[in-house]
Amino acid sequence: MGQVDLGRQAALLLLADGRLPAGGYAHSGGLEPAVIAGRVRNMADLEAFLTGRAQTAGLVAAAFAAAACARASRDDLAALPELEAEFDARIPSPELRKVSRDLGRQLQRAMGSIHPHRYFSALGRAPHQPLVMGVAASVLGLGPQDAALAILHDNNAGAAAAAKLMRVDPFEVHAILARATGPLDDLARRAAETADADPADLPAPSAPLADIAAEHHRRADARLFAS
C-alpha cells in the first residue's frame, strides 16, 4: 500500500487534474485573502505561503483523504462520520469548513456523474472534500497515498490563482511548484502512514493566519475567488 500502482497512474492524473469539472477554479486556496491582507507580495512570499499551507491544511487534508481511502477500500463507510467530526474539529473557521464542504459536494457531484458508484451517495449531503477525494481514489482503484497526493496537489490551487492576483512570471510560479514536488511526496507518504490510525490521532496542524484571513475574505466587498 502507498506506492503508486503502475497500472493506475492515469487514474491518479485524472483525479488530480485541475480540469476535473468539480468547481475548483473558483478558489485560490487562501492566496487571495493573503494577497489582499498584504502578506504575499512577491515570489518568496508566495513560496513560503504555499509551503506553510501544504504543511498545515495540506497535511490535514492529505491525512483525512488517505484515511477515507483506506476505509472505503475495505468497504467501511460506517467509519466516515467519525472522520467528518474529527476533520471539523481541526478547522476552527466556519468559512473554511464551508469551503471544504462546498468543494466536497462539488467533487461528489462531479465524480458521481463521471464514475458512478454507490459510495458517492453514501457520503451524505455535503461531505468534506478530503473524504470525497479519498473515496473517489478508492473507487478508481487507487490507494491512500494517491488520495493524499491528489488532495495535496489540489490544495496548491493558490499557485494557479497567483497569475490572476499578482504580477508574476508564470514560469517562476511553476518553478516553485517544481521545488515543492519533493515535499509534497513526503507529505503524501506521511499521510499514508496514518491512513489506518485512530482518527483522533490524525495530524491537526493549524494555520492561524489562513483562518483569520478566510473570515475577512467572506466579508470583502470585492473578490475574484470564493476563497
Partner: peptide, 9 residues
C-alpha cells in the same frame, strides 16, 4: 517549513 509564511504565522 513555511511557519513564517502567510498561511501560518
Amino acid at each position: 517549513a513555511g511557519f513564517d509564511g502567510a498561511a501560518v504565522l
